[in-house]
Design a protein around this nucleic acid. Structure first.
Lengths: 332, 332
DNA sequence: CTTGCGCCCGACAACGTTGTCAGGTCATTG
DNA sequence: CAATGACCTGACAACGTTGTCGGGCGCAAG
């Protein structure tokens, strides 16, 4: 900026005024400054400005997700980015890989970079440590999982209702022996989907068979193995509700290997882009990551605009995508 | 920092020394400072430090990709993030959606935030405008596509060889009428894959039939429509090489709709996670986004470490994933 | 002609931090 | 006992920018 001022023959404050579009600069001077800035390929230093600027906004927000490579998280990310860009914001994203220590590390790293707000997928048992940041004026919105130990805005999928929809759908096709394949119990969404499964079974007056409930799955290979043992049971399930994407994939693989894909019904939580290309095509409970991300970002900017309203939890409903595997009838 | 200094009863410079682990602070003083910092939940301002710090590093790097929601880009992103984290770096990512204007906007936005380096998927016809940044000491590495108008490190998939592998594979199963379904011609990878297709046909002594080459596809629906017309041809293809993920999906859909999935061979460029669950399972040419991202990040940090070596292009080979659809034999 | 006001413009301090430098304390050495 | 040097410590300037303030100029009104 110094150099631009010198080249244009004005004071640095005048350059600042031109760059920031402040009034009270003559047209001729402004033009000279703009030319000088262009000649020198000058780019203002946003962070140096923040240091002194009244609002002190870095126009950058921090996003903590399970992994930027996870398709669900990546779509949430994209939706957030879209809103952020409209506000002139950039997004610093960090992958936590479900590691509680990584959550702390990432918050520290982003905090030191002075992000204006956090969008966090909670991993730890307790997010109360984030209150400091909120109190200091860095708003926080949680996505996908609810925070513990702090009241804040939160945007989540309707996990319970989605799971109930899946189970109700299977029940409506005559199934009563419906297996549940769940992710690690320490993951909130896994617990909620299990809860939805149990609730709907109860609502349908179906007794729970513990042998049909397998928890703690986290990858497709394990899911495949589990499904094989389930089917080998003396009284095997006639339908399966797999509560996560990779588990669904592992389940399909097992069913195909055993040649049971056409006589055991399957509904998966989380949509598969290629679900319609399999035989049978896979019925799923689709989440809406785009909407989740957009709503979370909008809540965050509402805080940044100073008009937060009360902290509230927004539940984004799922959508049952009927394709075939979920409509295989149960025993007559 | 001021407050920490006051609370610990020392000068701010001493706090700075403790925070940065500089020597020449007595153990007792250091401990007092650390306690004070902890009590006040002090977080140093990285950007304020950079302003004065000798190296002036923001410990943040900028990543420009087609879209953070694109599975390939997301995996590249994750791999870069892994390397970046090991160096204490954070990643600012921006989605370009193949919009040349967005490329400029994103570079400006990241430059103003003083990222220490750029990893860019080029979209524009010319990246010479980035030379300014390189000259000013902000290194640049390109990924997935080669830059134009500037010599710089670049990490790309072996598009030509991958396409040749696909075609050679089909030829080896007796096919001579192999259709090519290409993405928009303005996308470099699309052009290279077409080139590979043509080269391998020539090498096999097969005459090119222009009727079997369809370019400019960018989504699955269009691909589906195109495949339907190809199959309706008087002399239809016996095999299809679809050169991009969505196109492959659209192709499978068309083949299934027409009941030709078992008699027309198919190889797709870019792997499908669920490729083995379809009937037939889909043979693909898999890219290695993890390796691409890792290598790109390593090249960038080599520059930041001051040991760049000459600008070079790294080509990451593809891998043929044989699953079934590509092994359907051609006419005897 | 003087006064007052509005418009331009630049000097200066300040933002939170680090580099420089000088000063002060204490033990060791001649 | 004086001199030396190693070790600690803080005052101050500086990084690139913006907020504050006051000065100069031109013009309209009294």
């Amino acid at each position: 900026m110094r150099d631009v001022a010198r080249l244009a023959g004005v004071g640095i404050k005048t350059v600042s005024r031109v760059i920031n579009g402040e009034p009270n600069v003559s047209v001729a001077t402004a033009e000279r400054v703009r030319r000088a800035a262009a000649d020198l390929l000058y780019e203002p230093d946003l962070h140096a400005g923040n240091l002194r600027r009244a609002d002190g906004r870095s126009r950058t927000l921090g996003l903590l997700v399970s992994s930027v490579a996870n398709p669900f998280a990546a779509q949430v990310h994209r939706a957030i980015e879209r809103v952020a860009n409209a506000y002139g914001y950039a997004v610093l994203a960090a992958s936590l890989e479900d590691d509680p220590a990584a959550e702390l590390r990432a918050v520290t790293a982003l905090s030191r970079r002075r992000v204006d707000g956090f969008i966090v997928t909670p991993v730890r048992d307790d997010q109360s440590y984030l209150r400091v940041h909120v109190d200091r004026g860095t708003p926080l919105v949680c996505v996908d999982r609810t925070p513990k130990g702090i009241e804040t805005d939160c945007v989540v999928t309707g996990n319970i209702d989605g799971a109930r929809d899946a189970v109700r759908h299977l029940v409506s096709y005559g199934h009563r022996r419906i297996a549940f394949l769940g992710d690690l119990e320490r993951i909130e969404t896994a617990r909620l989907r299990r809860e939805g499964y149990l609730t709907e079974l109860a609502a349908a007056g179906i007794e729970v068979d513990p042998a049909l409930i397998v928890l703690g799955l986290h990858d497709d290979a394990t899911a495949t193995a589990v499904v094989r043992t389930l089917i080998a049971l003396p009284d095997p399930p006639t339908a399966i509700f797999s509560s996560q994407n990779l588990i669904t994939i592992g389940t399909i693989r097992a069913l195909q290997q055993l040649g049971h894909e056409h006589d055991i019904a399957l509904v998966g939580f989380d949509d598969l882009e290629t679900g319609d290309l399999m035989k049978p095509a896979i019925t799923t409970v689709a989440q809406d990551p785009d909407r989740i991300g957009r709503l979370a970002a909008e809540r965050l900017f509402a805080h940044l605009d100073g008009d937060p309203g009360p902290a509230r939890q927004v539940v984004v409903p799922t959508r049952l995508v009927v394709r075939g595997s979920g409509e295989i009838p149960g025993p007559a």
